[in-house]
Amino acid sequence: MDLTTLEKDLVNGWQKGFPLVARPYARIADALGISEERVLEILAGLEARGILSRVGAIVAPNTLGASSLVAMRVARDQLDEVAAIVSSEPGVNHNYEREDNFNLWFVVTAPDADGLDATLARIEARTGHATLRLPLQKAYHIDLGFAL
């Protein structure tokens, strides 16, 4: 999907360091030399096109609550059904098919370790499939946004 120059400037410049001031979009507008209304319009447009997921925070893994990457091995003809059950869990925030015999990969977060156990137990009961839990031990590099 093509972006205008202004959209690119906005997207490249503000994936981190969002202004922590009362009127952050006005601060961004000043930096870009446009109006606050225009910034809000552009962001709403990016959101409507599915490019902007949200203006939000990426929280360091395992600092609050418990989380884990989880893999499942699912027969091809059951994958849609199992994936839909996994996605329906509120604690699941990424859920992807990957090319491997472990073909369903998702991240679960919960307020605490017991909550994580409960979510995975529910997924196993509802899908009839085992889950492979792969908790983080150390992060060397996490998503800091990327340049377009």
């Binding site: 906005l10 994936q15 981190k16 360091g17 490019i51 939000g56 990426i58 609050l64 946004g145």
Partner: peptide
Amino acid sequence: VIRRLGLVLQ
């Protein structure tokens, strides 16, 4: 705790 705050893209 917050590693980045800003636009999160798809």
